[in-house]
Design a protein around this nucleic acid. Sequence first.
RNA 1: GGGCAAUUAGCUCAGUGGUUAGAGCACUGCAUUCACAUUGCAGGGGUCGCAGGUUCAAAUCCUGCAUUGCCCACCA
Length: 746
Amino acid sequence: MNSELSKTYEPKKVEGKIYKFWEKGGWFTPKIVPRKKPFTILLPLPNANDPLHMGHVLFAVEDIIIRYYRMRGRPTLWLPGGDHAGIETQFVFEKRLAKEGKSRFDFGRKTLYKMISEFVEKNKNINREQLKKLGFSLDWTRYHYSLEPNIVKIVFDTFRKLHRDGLIYRGERIVNFCTKCGTAFSDLEVDYVEKDEFLYYLDYTTLQIATTRPETIFADVAVAVNPTDKRYKNLIGKKAVIPLINKEVPIIADKRIDVNFGTGVLKVTPGHDTTDYEIGQTHNLETITIIDKNGRMTNLPEKYLGLTVKTAREKTINDLEKAEKLVKTEPLKHSIGICYRCKTTIEPLIMPQWFLKIGPLAKPALEAVEKERIKIIPEKRFKKMYLNWMRNVRDWNIGRQIVWGPQIPVWYCLDCNPDILINFINKKGNKINGTYKDLKDKYNFAEIKKGLQSLSASKNPVYSLEEKACQKCKGKKILQETDTFDTWFLSGQWPLTALGYQKSKDFKYFYPTSVLDTLWDILFFWVARMIMFGLYLTKEVPFKIVHIHCRVVDENGQKMSKSKGNVLDPMDMVQKYGADALRMSVIFGTTPGTDICISDNKIRGMRNFANKIWNASRFVLMNLKGFDPKIKPKLTKKDKKILRELNSFSKEITKLMDSFKFYQAAEKIYHYFWHIFCDKIIEEEKSRLQGSNKKEKEASQYLLLQILKTNLELLHPFIPFITEEIYQKLPIKNKKKCLMIENWPV
RNA sequence: GGGCAAUUAGCUCAGUGGUUAGAGCACUGCAUUCACAUUGCAGGGGUCGCAGGUUCAAAUCCUGCAUUGCCCACCA
């Protein structure tokens, strides 16, 4: 190979070529060697339809770990994947539909699924190519997409096992429903925002109540006071009257009532409020629903029928005022739940849903971290955050009323569930909805099945976990549950599914994995669920270390977002300064779990470092005239001292790598290379190199080459491209085919 | 409401009891073809949030306070 180097480092000429060289060489794919202990990381699978953003560059941490262990001789697997990302993807797709003036309601679910699927297929490869541009040494031969049939099959089996173990149940509970997205969410997917609203004091004849939601008075079934409240003690057991509809409801006592809020009296609306629902459960109260899934009023006096919640509120207030039942109105700042995705106010609605009983899964997951079978880095803050969450975790609503994702493997016999609600598009293209018993005479089964949009089974439906004729009535009019799994129900099993749970050699060899590296924002969504599923199915932890990497913010500490216009595109930065510089800039001067400010300036600084490496190497290579790698020259005392120091420096770096202090390792090597090797050693060697003493010259050449090689090895996990390119040009003994499989020094 | 964490140079952060507290970026002065100006040399800049305490010794341990960030719960 030509040892002439250009005057400045040009990443564009090097990176693509080097990546292809690595890929062709097959070095990303580990060989299964039974006696050797493997090292495994699963890439937190990016959404298959999304290009990468700055945050993804932090996967560099994983590449650093992977390259380090690979150089240490472990069979090392870094497994990439793509996630179908149920709600995220459907949301993006629906936005596109909206631009064409269409919505999800215009299609049967099969058609809609196919459209989204094609959309994802088209985009799936974009981020794969981008991950390659960043130099990530992922084993592409093991790439998996979350909707592959084998993966879905494992997920279905898990569902069945959970069901057998009594951990899956269909429950009618109050759920967080987004009327815009048209789906229920888990507690994790609700955000809270402070809003300035009003507190309305209403006259319920016997007493006064205070509420922020006057439009729900029609669904009141009681009013409640605190049993210790002297003001109302003698009213308990008597009646109050709901204004406008003049309905009598009992006055009950419940200790959940805050004496100091409003009038100290709560109107109990179990159909539309979480606390009220719980009070209703305790006191065995009826539940009335007056808001439907579209956020429209239903099941109440005709003048309010079909109104949106907002309009209904205005109208109710108006009517209350006319009826002289509105006592007063106070401004109130309070927080309300909104959809994390579309920011619509979450409507608590009573609905039958599929739930996973979490207690039995959480217990071992809690212990695993308490007893440090799984270690969280950095421990402070995140370990406690995890334990705290796991101790208080509630049952998980695993169904989503969207099409994009695997349908829950539950089949309903229509004849045994005559009250099942059906939405479908008929032959003529009209939207039809109603219960099966009302529809079955007008439409045949095939027509319903073909145009089916969604089903909604009752609280206690007759169902089977297999698609087969009904066990009860032998009927064949069977439809699968249209709710799909929460995406995290699938990705929570990723360590199992991606490695081919049970059946494959990979699973036996690579599970449990070594490290899971991610951002803290999905600690509960994903990490906690993986731990629960892993322990439930295998009794083993899915990974031994959870490493929390940094969140990228802009140079002013602001979160990057399109609306703020402060987004840096990682691919632009690769183009401008090179992948190595970009990678180094997200590692250098950072601590796990904190925010990291990324700016053009910082990346440029790291590009300068790459250039420094390039030129120092260039200098060493330019001065190798007459050098024979086979002969080891006689070194001076000073040379030996420098090499000893280099050796102990390497040991220091190894120690930092082993303890996951990559930021410190990066800073130390940076410092050594630039300020010791370049500024001192090279400067001092110039006289020997340019002098006439041949032996001194050879010793100097040997010394510089030795230091350069070791530094390239130490730097390689951080900045793989430039170090590989230079390594290829070094005239050294026992040279490997590439630097990425060289032995780590020490 | 319950909890966790942070507060060190202009900015972003290292630094868990021991000599004059460090890095990157930014800043100031000088150097112009020496491998590299994507450079070199030199330099400025910190009462380590505040108040107490423990210790021969505190940025580091303890207590209280202030401010900021985050997590969980919830607000009729």
